[in-house]
Design a protein around this nucleic acid. Structure first.
Lengths: 101, 101
DNA sequence: GTTGTATATCGAAAATTTACGATATATATT
DNA sequence: AATATATATCGTAAATTTTCGATATACAAC
């Protein structure tokens, strides 16, 4: 993980809504129990839109930011995009911060 | 550490120069070996100004941001301000992030 | 007291981030 | 094909952050 990547990751975490999203994706079964699709694929974007209360386009941008930072991945199935948290990346980030900071 | 405080701390770390400063203050004897005053008191603002290459007022603002977040403290002696890293706060922040993220 | 030095604060310009609605794209349904 | 749904992208306005020079404040030295 380069310094530039670390920078991008910290910036990604510097917005409370993005931290919320990352948290919700930690326990999809708890936070997205009402999702119609199976949670196996991940959480679909619209569910996250709802939970934040922000506009669809804004949330899409937040998700893109988290994805660029590597914290989440998306899988497109039909018309839906399913997002999952990359636990390994989160842990690698924390480990890096522990030694770097 | 409240959510608001955590937010302020992450934001404080979201600027590379502020992370640099925090790093330099971790090993003052290495990064500020040329300081005239004893390093026991901390690192004086002017030394940090130099190292960043940014203007005096800009660095003063960065130091204020780090201080508001709790990561550093300052002690005024004569006309100088000496800054020290609050290791306990840094560690508390990391611990919090480890469980919260 | 005047001059010099160190730092903080002020005011403003520039850059970046956040947010929205509108639109584009892609898939699904009728 | 026409319509509906889900998401991404575009253009842009608003908010926030970063930066600077100028000034204020405080102390030191002469």
């Amino acid at each position: 993980m380069s310094t530039a990547e670390l920078d991008e990751m910290i910036k990604a975490l510097s917005h409370p809504v993005r931290r919320d999203i990352l948290n919700w994706l930690k326990q999809p079964d708890i936070f997205f129990a009402d999702q119609q699709h199976s949670l196996n694929l991940g959480v679909c974007a619209g569910m996250i839109d709802q939970k934040t209360g922000l506009s669809q386009s804004t949330v899409s941008a937040h998700l893109a930011t988290l994805q660029r930072a590597g914290f989440i991945s998306s899988k497109k199935v039909g018309q839906w995009s399913f997002f999952t948290r990359n636990e390994a990346v989160v842990q690698a980030f924390l480990a890096r911060l522990n030694e770097q900071l």
